[in-house]
């Protein structure tokens, strides 16, 4: 999960993203190195989620370049971007985004099955992750029957399924109660400590200080400041 050459896993250069006449990102340049845990903070509408979308290849910049794990996303077509997302990144969302019709195990296995992995192999790998994340007993349960914390753990398992170069999390504790939020924070911290590169977007100061080694503050689509943190965990 680390970059063997010690180079930046994520490299943004002068990225600008416009929606109509307003700029959600305005000349953002940023590097994230392998093994880092970076938190992006800022008020609503400051451009945090747009930044995450650029790194995940969910959206394209109006100008500037985004390079992730050596892939220049500006050169990829829609299919190329899909393959990039499949192989290089894992995403965690505030509202989990699990498929209601699939069991927890099949939700996680799905990510591998899209790469052509057989159902049996995908389920085996998913079960390993369930055991690592402490939710093996809930593998055959459906999303509507899981608690918020459990749903987010399933979402984390899905994000890790294809061993991504970077894990992107958009307000991962935003829809959770305090206890479930803390469990997810612990999980992310554990992952980073075993080498998983993390990029978090959050309003939650506690999440940032607990999980991130670096905090980037966003205001009006620009980087307003950057801080290195001593983790409190």
């Amino acid at each position: 999960m680390t970059d063997d050459n010690g180079q930046a896993v994520v490299q943004l250069t002068a990225v600008r993203k416009e929606y109509g006449e307003s700029a959600a990102l305005d000349g953002v340049s940023l590097e994230i190195h392998a093994g880092e845990a970076v938190a992006v903070m800022g008020p609503s509408g400051s451009g945090k989620s747009t930044l995450l979308s650029m790194v995940a290849g969910l959206d394209r910049p109006t100008s500037g370049s985004v390079v992730v794990h050596g892939d220049d996303l500006g050169t990829l077509d829609e299919k190329g971007l899909a393959l990039f997302r499949r192989r290089r990144i894992g995403m965690i969302f505030q509202f989990f985004n699990l498929l209601d019709d699939l069991s927890a195990l099949d939700n996680v296995a799905l990510a591998a099955q899209l790469t052509g992995t057989s159902a049996a192999h995908a389920r085996k790998r998913a079960l390993e992750l369930f055991e690592e994340l402490g939710i093996a007993g809930r593998r055959n349960t459906y999303p509507s029957q899981l608690s918020g914390g459990e749903r987010q753990r399933v979402a984390v398992a899905r994000a890790l399924m294809n061993r991504p170069a970077i894990l992107l999390a958009d307000e991962p504790t935003g829809a959770l109660d305090t206890r479930a939020g803390e469990q997810v924070m612990d999980l992310l911290l554990d992952l980073n400590q075993i080498g998983q590169t993390l990029l978090l977007v959050t309003h939650d100061q506690q999440l940032a200080t607990r999980c991130a080694s670096r905090v980037i503050d966003f205001v009006d689509g620009q980087i307003a400041g950057e801080r290195s943190l001593e983790r409190t965990a």
């Binding site: 990039f84 799905l110 899905r158």
Partner: peptide, 8 residues
């Protein structure tokens, strides 16, 4: 979500 995890 499916596209975000790599569905083309």
């Amino acid at each position: 979500m499916l596209k975000s995890i790599g569905m083309t």
